[in-house]
Design a protein around this nucleic acid. Structure first.
Length: 817
RNA sequence: GCCUGCGUGGUGGAAUGGUAGACACGACGGAUUCAAAAUCCGUUAUCUUCGGAUGUGGCGGUUCAAGUCCGCCCGCAGGUACCA
């Protein structure tokens, strides 16, 4: 029987569909596994990153089904978002039809890859039913005080009269019309994620056993909790007069109060209120104003790279020394961290140092290393001993920090403060293709929530997407409505929501079954059974934003009484990207590989096998056409040899190991080694590449013998191990020979690993010189004796210092002479 | 700029502090074939005076032992709050 991917794959895909093989059971007494891969944006076609993502989750889902778990492995589409509007601008397509056409196409691609998704829970976040429940949650959050309005700076194109995403700003200009963008202060909605900053930070501990350390560290740094001193810097009299006494002082925050005697200038963010006041009141030269405007309009990343600044011609008084300190504006000072102002200590901070060097500002060192000299050509940012700091001289940094904070508190001129880098989450978008924020502006009543029974507030379909203005704002009728409170004429909010809102709760929606799909987002009972997600799999690019927002929503939902746990994702697997020719696959680079073409030529099993074999999941994966060919050849061999060497049976053959010859024993050992490795891979390591290599080794060993019992036993196990990877061919073999009885848990037997003798490496001074063969039960003394004989050549004239035996590995003899 | 990773043969990678290069691709040699494809078997880190020497981005350190742990440097990638 020749291997034909097409006939086997069509057969089993049809079977799975007809038998609804992958729908989870509603029997909540069974043990469950919730396997989730991050759902895709429906960009049109699957790319290899998707194939990798869903092949991984599918492998887990299929493995746990074999282990008799009740498995939920759902799929949906994160279908709101900017690309649908970009396509509309480019091709005149409607975002909705563009999106749903793409979804239809991608669903077929999923099916052709043999992914074992539960189809009955499929959803698109742009479905009105999804929007309805989401808008309900938004209203709940507003009522709980977790959603509020404030001004925020946005990229504005003065030509197209539209807000631009960061991605749509190319070299400081609009992507469509090339007009230089400006920052515009506009009313925005924000989630109060900062209220949960401490809990989001503390609960990272609960994730330690299941999440990669890398992601935990990234989130910890992103939240960026730091303790320090906040105090006011007061202007001198001349400066106060300049400001017409509108400002007396400004607030600064430092994590290094021990360096306070080293302050030699202070810097404000370009957006700081004092700076704005000076611009408005023409207190700055036009040249200075132009420099400040340029700082404001450049991106935050640019502002951190090339430091620039300008003096304001103001001075403040040092709170402890009474010295005059100049006030500057600096581009690297950010308005949304701390108070938008910093005290600068160039001797002990890199950024302050670079800035001081560039503008020739004084550098005053006040900390020296506990041992060694202070280098005047660099900032010394470590802790050390204070000098030039009056009464605090001689203290170490840690003591000085506590004492200086205490001094400020006692004098009532400053206080101990905690700051976070984490900012509140801006959720409003001035775009069409998103979930409308279900609020109404009434002249009488102010901001009013839409009534829940009127949800969803749905998008109008008759819109023109041009890239100019805000489509909902421009729509002739959509925004006009009656106030739900007083009944008078009112207008709807025309902002829609950030698409991260949809992806912050979709994993909860998947817990709902068809029985309550229409009437509620999910039931408490369903959530309790299915959550948390046992394996969550997705790209490392989501390490911070998506995963932090989903954690935040979970905690908010808990506090709203919808669920009873703190964290949504038990175990997280972050996959690396798929590269070709050393670069990320992308249309613009023209280095994409189309999954459809691959499936057409080799079949889904080959695509899946290659992608799992080529690299461990967390690592970047380099595409290689000839290695794909190799994967295909392996599957063909795997299939064809089954049909030449096996007999049919519905129980695993029982074999008397002692009667076997050397090759047969070795083959069995390799098979059970592969099984032991597979168990480890599925449960702990997730390195499918090594699991597959183990099966290949077993195949090579099997090939050196011809015992049909050994072959049949091997396939009983190997088809089970490989089913999650190459399900179609595995089901075919299982069906043909084992009545599919082997797709079940497999037990490792120990007798195949028993050996009479073992080989050990012999090292002299850590350098491998030779090897020895010893009895498996030889004592260390015997082993050392044999090792010394074998290594006599290198031991001549040397005196032995130490002898180390590493069981079953090697002997190291340390000599000198 | 900042935060987080990664760097091993011609290539993808293995090695859970203990014999570096498993497994695979490619290449080379052979078998089969009228011939080719397919298939099967074998060789394959580098240098070598054939004794051995060198070797995991670079420099240094810890250890009996380092690809693995620590420090600094170089290169690449992801994130950087309106791409998802």
């Amino acid at each position: 029987m020749e291997y034909s991917s097409k006939s086997i794959e069509t057969k089993w895909q049809k079977y799975w569909q007809e038998h609804k093989s992958f729908e989870p059971s509603e029997d909540f007494s069974r043990e469950k596994k919730y396997i989730l891969s991050m759902f895709p944006f429906p960009s049109g076609r699957l790319h290899m990153g998707h194939v990798r993502n869903y092949t991984l989750s599918d492998a887990f889902a299929r493995y746990y089904r074999q282990q008799n778990f009740n498995v939920l492995h759902p799929i949906g589409f994160d279908s709101f978002g900017m690309p649908a509007e970009n396509a509309a601008i480019k091709n005149g397509s409607h975002p909705k039809s563009w999106t749903y056409d793409n979804i239809d196409y991608m669903k077929n691609e999923f099916a052709s890859l043999g992914f074992s998704f539960s189809k009955e829970r499929e959803l698109a976040t742009s479905d009105e039913l999804y929007t309805k429940f989401e808008q309900g949650f938004i209203i709940d959050m507003y009522e709980k005080g977790l959603l509020y309005r404030k001004k925020g700076m946005l990229n504005w194109c003065p030509h197209d009269l539209t807000v631009l995403a960061n991605e749509q700003v190319v070299d400081g200009c609009c992507w469509r019309c090339d007009t230089p963008i400006v920052k515009k202060d506009m009313n925005q909605y924000y989630f109060k994620i900062t209220e949960y900053a401490d809990e989001l930070l503390a609960d990272l501990d609960k994730l330690e056993s299941g999440w990669p350390k890398q992601v935990l560290t990234m989130q910890e740094n992103w939240i960026g909790k730091s303790n320090g001193l906040a105090f006011d810097l007061y202007f001198d009299d001349t400066s106060k007069t300049k400001l017409s006494s509108n400002f007396e002082s400004f607030d600064v925050f430092t994590t290094r109060p021990d360096t306070i005697y080293g302050v030699s200038y202070t810097a404000l963010a370009p957006e700081h209120a004092i700076v704005s006041y000076m611009i408005e009141n023409k207190l700055l030269s036009s040249d200075v104003v132009a420099q400040i405007e340029a700082m404001k309009n450049s991106s935050s990343i640019e502002r951190q790279k090339e430091k620039s600044g300008v003096a304001l011609g103001l001075d403040v008084i040092h709170p402890l020394t009474g010295e005059k300190i100049p006030v500057w504006v600096a581009n690297f000072v950010l308005m949304d961290y701390g108070s938008g102002a910093v005290m600068a200590v160039p001797a002990h901070d890199e950024r302050d140092f670079d800035f001081a060097k560039k503008y020739d500002l004084p550098i005053k060192a006040v900390i020296k290393p506990f041992d060694g000299e202070l280098n005047p050509e660099a900032a010394y940012t470590e802790v050390g001993e204070l000098f030039g700091s009056s009464e605090f001289d001689g203290l170490n940094s840690k003591e000085a920090q506590a004492k200086i904070i205490a001094h400020f508190q006692a004098q009532n001129i400053g206080k101990k403060t905690t700051n976070y880098k984490l900012k509140d989450w801006g959720v409003s978008r001035q775009r069409y293709w998103g979930a409308p924020i279900p609020f109404i502006h009434c002249e009488e009543c102010g901001l009013v929530m839409e009534k829940k029974e009127n949800l969803p507030v749905a998008l109008p379909s008759d819109v023109e997407i041009t890239g100019e203005g805000n489509p909902l704002e421009k729509h002739p009728t959509w925004k006009h409505c009656k106030c739900p409170k007083c009944g008078k004429d009112a207008v709807r909010e025309t902002d829609t929501m950030d698409t991260f809102v949809e992806s912050s709760w979709y994993f909860l929606r998947f817990c709902a079954s068809k029985t309550n799909w229409e009437k509620e987002a999910f039931s408490a009972e369903q959530i309790k059974y299915w959550m948390g997600v046992d394996h969550y799999i997705g790209g490392i690019e989501h390490a911070i934003l998506h995963l932090l927002y989903a954690r935040f929503f979970t905690k908010v939902f808990r506090d709203l009484g919808y669920l009873e746990f703190d964290e949504p994702f038990e175990r997280l697997l972050t996959q690396g990207m798929v590269l070709k020719d050393g670069a990320k696959m992308s249309k613009s680079k023209g280095n994409t590989v189309d999954p459809d073409a691959l499936i057409e030529k080799y079949g889904a099993d080959t695509a899946r096998l290659f992608i799992l074999f080529a690299a461990p999941p967390t690592q970047e994966l380099e595409w290689n056409d000839s290695a794909v060919e190799g994967a295909y050849k392996f599957i063909k061999r795997f299939h064809d040899r089954a049909f030449t060497h096996l007999y049919a049976t519905d129980v695993i053959p029982s074999i008397d190991h002692t009667t076997l010859n050397k090759e047969e024993k070795f083959a069995r050992k390799k098979v059970y080694e592969a099984l032991a490795r597979a168990n480890e891979v599925y449960n702990e390591r997730y390195t499918f590449n090594t699991m597959i290599a183990g099966v290949m080794e077993a195949m090579n060993a099997l090939n050196a013998q011809s015992n049909k019992d050994v072959w049949t036993e091997a396939y009983w196990i190997m088809a089970s191990i490989m089913e999650p990877v190459i399900p179609h061919v595995a089901w075919e073999i299982s069906e043909q020979f084992f009545g599919r009885k082997n797709l079940a848990p497999q037990a490792v037997i120990d007798e195949v690993f028993e050996e009479d003798s073992i080989t050990l490496g012999v090292s002299i001074n850590g350098k491998r010189r030779t090897e020895i063969e010893v009895a498996a039960d030889a004592s260390n003394e015997e082993i050392i004796l044999i090792a010394k004989e074998a290594g006599a050549k290198w031991l001549e004239g040397m005196s032995i210092v130490k002898e180390i035996v590493v069981p079953k590995k090697l002997v190291n003899i340390v000599v000198k002479g």
